[in-house]
Amino acid sequence: MTFYSEERTALFIDGSNLYASARSLGFDIDYKKLLSEFSSQVRLVRAFYYTALIEDQEYSPIRPLVDWLDYNGYTMVTKPTKEFTDATGRRKYKGNMDIELAIDMMELAEHIDHAVLFSGDGDFRRLIEAVQKRGVRVTVVSTVKSQPPMIADELRRQADFFLELKNMEKNVGRAVSQRQDKDFDEYPVEYETYDEAEQTA
């Protein structure tokens, strides 16, 4: 796809979803490279990163990454997670940031030409449609090369452009052992994946 240098562009990063997508492809995101990649091609207005944080723990494994992003050009949007117990009795944490992301994209729509959404969540299809009606081009970054695919088919169809995350690895990726977030192996917040049954439902 083509980016235009005069285009006012904003990035909207669904943190847990992007993390899961990159890990499913065998690499991690280098957020410094990611910001540089887009800054060199467009007029980058804002880069939002959305994640829920486990607040009642003495140490949150994602906190070092969140702090690094906050000091290095990203606008952090966070909220506390909700704890639940799964069917096996294990404690898990869930934090849905869809509303926060949707509000920010709608509010910024009149000030940008292009929105880049890093997520495969099909719940964002209606949001994309709404900002498109305001004249904003929308690119979705996710992957169909993982098993299962990390993007909902309806979201891919609605977007003006789809960027395959695997094709961006050379420019924005790094080996897992080189992560900035070395202290955890799994994103501590639940995320969604999309298999073929869900895509065709």
Rank of each mutant, 00 (worst) to 15 (best):
M1R: 04
M1G: 12
Y4R: 12
Y4E: 11
E7W: 03
A10Y: 01
A10H: 06
I13R: 07
D14H: 05
N17E: 08
L18N: 02
A20F: 06
A22Q: 05
A22K: 08
L25Q: 07
G26T: 03
G26E: 01
F27W: 03
S36A: 13
F38Y: 15
S39N: 14
L44G: 07
Y49M: 06
Y49K: 01
T51E: 15
E55N: 09
D67A: 11
D67I: 06
W68F: 12
D70V: 00
Y71D: 13
Y74D: 03
P80W: 06
P80S: 11
T81M: 02
T81K: 03
K82M: 07
K82T: 08
E83H: 07
F84P: 05
D86A: 01
T88S: 14
R91V: 10
Y93F: 14
K94H: 06
K94G: 14
G95C: 05
N96E: 15
M97F: 02
E100D: 13
E107W: 02
L108K: 06
E110K: 12
H111I: 02
H111F: 14
L117I: 13
D121K: 09
F124T: 02
F124A: 02
R125S: 13
R126T: 10
Q132Y: 01
V136G: 05
R137N: 10
R137L: 13
R137V: 08
R137K: 15
V138P: 05
V140R: 05
V140D: 10
S142R: 11
P148K: 11
M150N: 13
A152W: 00
D153Y: 09
L155N: 05
D160F: 00
L165G: 01
E169F: 05
N171H: 11
D181G: 05
D183W: 13
P188C: 03
V189F: 08
E196A: 09
E196C: 01
T200H: 12
